[in-house]
Nucleic acid binder design. Sequence first.
DNA 1: ATCCAGGATATCT
DNA 2: AGATATCATGGA
Length: 317
Amino acid sequence: MEAGGQLTQSRRDHAAMIVKTDDPSRAIDLDLTFSCGQVFRWTKIEDGWVGIIGDSLVRLQQREGRLLVQSSAPLPKSRITSYLRLDDDLQSILKELSRDREFRKIVKSIPGLRILRQDPWECLASFVCSRNCRVPMIRRIVRNISQRFGKRVTWGDYLDHSFPEAEIISQASLSELASCGLRYGRRQARELKELARLICEGEIDFGALKDTSYAEAKARLMSFDHGVGNKVADCVLLFSLEKLESFPVDVWVARTVAELYHDHLRPDLVSKAARGRSLTPRDYREISDFGRSHFGRYAGYAQEYIYHWKRLKEGVC
DNA sequence: ATCCAGGATATCT
DNA sequence: AGATATCATGGA
């Protein structure tokens, strides 16, 4: 191919694709969406967010009523809109969730926060690693795993690594995994390896889980005793398996629900959650079930708004 | 130093 | 079935 053709090809790859977000139903705030603790591998560089979708390095820039998208390799626009869940009518969802004064206040303070549609394996691995960690540490662990086991991707000045396939992790050494910062000695490393193996062997089939009900998919994910309990399962179901009714409960959500909706919970649970005490499975179920019954089919969105609003208010992030 | 983090599991009563 | 003990680490 002649030089002119290559230049044209190169320009086409690096030209910014425009995704329109001017309609209120497609509103999105990248800062809120990437820093709300649902995903751990996007970083803000200058005025853009850089991360990986599939095997491509992607840079997203927020502009008035639109997003500018650039990537190291051509990506169909549908891949971007799917990842960002721009197919969710955010305006309608938030309207449906705004059933009380407290929640309307929350929505008003952080409009444009969206749930993403993540890769299930990366999401599962991330939240298995999340146990006993704060968000910045989760980010570091997931980054370490990617750097050590993922594929190197470069694009201009940017360098990053894809998240390693389950097959790679299923063959990784425990000590090498543990040295990425996983907790509890080699225990979490073993859990991650076992989960990777189950995925490779088809025992965990994300496609099938997407087509299953929330309750069945959750029971399946929790049935292996490899580090996936209530909380991790709910996060994976919400952030990567289309279960928007999932209502994950961590210490922040428990505390905030106890504060805002104390009339709906047992008094002893309210005081326990307010003090940040750890929850029993029964406590977890009570708060999570409340979330689903109060907010309905989009309870997961409500959970994420509550979580991020509280953390911003407390100055944690 | 002490406390805590987007908890899960094995082991009791 | 529901409470309790244990796991074990970087950072504030």
